[in-house]
Amino acid sequence: MKWLALAYLAWTGQAALRFGCSTLTVQRLDPVVEPGNAPSAHVHQVVGGNAFQALVDPSVDVGNVANCTTCIFTEDKSNYWTAVLYFRARNGSFKRVGQYPNAVFHDGQKGGMTIYYTQETFSSNGKQKITAFKPGFRMTVGSPTLTTLEEARQYKALRYTCLDDVLTRGRETFELPKTPCKAGIMAIHHFPACWDGKNLDSPDHQSHLYNTVLGGFQVAAPCPASHPVRVPQVAYETMWDTAPFNDPALWPEDGSQPFVWSTGDTKGYSTHADYLFGWEGDSLQRTMDSDCFFQRCADDRPGGVLKIQTPEEQNACALQRLTVEEDVDGCKFFCFVFFP
């Protein structure tokens, strides 16, 4: 189902954002779940503002600290991250899988992922007030410790799509695809959109939110009284370029799928994502209050409200230095941490 091209025709109704972010860094850091730990338990691929580090003080307004972002909209200094996908060869070695830009994006983006901020659907907010996140807000979805399909089904909107081409949609699964995918594997992460209206975080980084999301950009159920504030529906899509590894001669002799998350998970159940808010000033609220849609939210378009930058500027944003210096591309690092 190639709905994406059709979705671009739905430029009526309330605001929705869809934009690309280049890779900022790939290393073992997680300032939400493991603040201050360097290294953290497993490798993450991170996009967004360059204030990302092992410890991000919740009292600090990240939007005012970062001086650049790898995302197309310059006012978004937030950070978005997931685990990293690796290919496991027959000889036991590992190779980090690359990422490529999503559909309808410029060719200049390097790696990274696609970020969404939607309301009720692509073309409506359901006549609800959408409240932007506040400085210091953070959240996670999924868990790196899940090992069974039953556990994974708790998170209805964390799934995979085996891509025939960049526009393939539908056929979502809770497990990593078991056969080669012509255009790679898309990992999908939808966050909850109901907030308690009080806490910027919680001990498990999830309880301050309530998940009524169904996935597939379907209309989420109403928010409960315990979490009455409707916030933007944040979602990530990461296009993992598994095509270079599609030769059957490279796959395990028993025919099992060869991809593994940096958590050590070969099934796909541990897929998870982290979010750390960092939009400048009221830029996200202004956007949610507008009627701009996707890239038309750029201020070089009629009705646009956000500043946009070039691919070259996106890719030029970087951390000043790696916090954890180690080989995250191959077996030297990966095998040492997870397969001693």
Rank of each mutant, 00 (worst) to 15 (best):
Y160E: 09
R159F: 01
D196P: 01
R28N: 05
K129N: 12
F294Y: 12
G255L: 09
F122I: 13
D289P: 06
F339D: 12
V33F: 12
R301K: 15
P302V: 07
T82S: 09
V260L: 06
G126Y: 02
W279S: 00
S270Q: 05
G13R: 01
E312A: 15
T179E: 15
P302W: 11
D300K: 12
Q295V: 13
F259A: 01
Q233G: 10
Q218N: 12
Q233E: 11
S59C: 11
G268Y: 02
Q218L: 15
A10R: 13
V56S: 04
E34Y: 10
C331K: 06
P248T: 05
D57Q: 10
V104S: 10
G13F: 00
T25H: 06
G197L: 10
F336K: 07
D30I: 07
T271Q: 13
Q53W: 02
N50T: 08
P203N: 11
K134F: 12
S123E: 13
S207Y: 03
A249T: 13
V305W: 00
I72S: 14
A89F: 05
T70F: 01
P248R: 02
F294P: 00
A157I: 05
G36R: 08
P180K: 04
R28G: 02
D247G: 08
P177Q: 05
K307A: 14
P35F: 07
T114G: 09
V46F: 02
M288T: 04
K2H: 14
D327E: 10
L250E: 09
A235L: 12
H44V: 07
I188T: 11
Q128C: 07
V43Q: 09
R159K: 15
Q314F: 02
E253C: 05
P31W: 07
Q27A: 04
W251L: 04
W11Y: 10
R171E: 15
W11L: 12
A221L: 14
W195P: 00
D265H: 03
G303Y: 04
Q257L: 09
F137Y: 14
C292E: 01
D241W: 09
Q119H: 07
V328T: 12
T266A: 15
L163T: 03
L146H: 03
G268C: 07
P244V: 05
G278I: 00
P252Q: 09
A83K: 06
L85M: 14
P177C: 04
G278C: 01
A221C: 07
F122G: 00
V260S: 01
C297R: 00
P232W: 01
D204K: 11
G278R: 00
Y8S: 08
E75T: 07
K110I: 15
T266W: 12
A225S: 14
V229D: 02
F191A: 02
A298Y: 01
R90C: 05
I188D: 08
K129Y: 09
L200F: 04
H189W: 15
N102W: 13
S262I: 02
T12F: 14
F336M: 05
Y80F: 15
G281R: 12
Y275I: 08
S93I: 02
V84A: 15
N50E: 13
G304V: 05
V47I: 14
A316Y: 08
W279T: 00
S226V: 10
F137G: 00
T74N: 10
G303C: 07
E313G: 03
P224D: 03
L4Q: 13
S226R: 04
T147N: 11
P222S: 12
G184I: 10
D61V: 03
R28I: 06
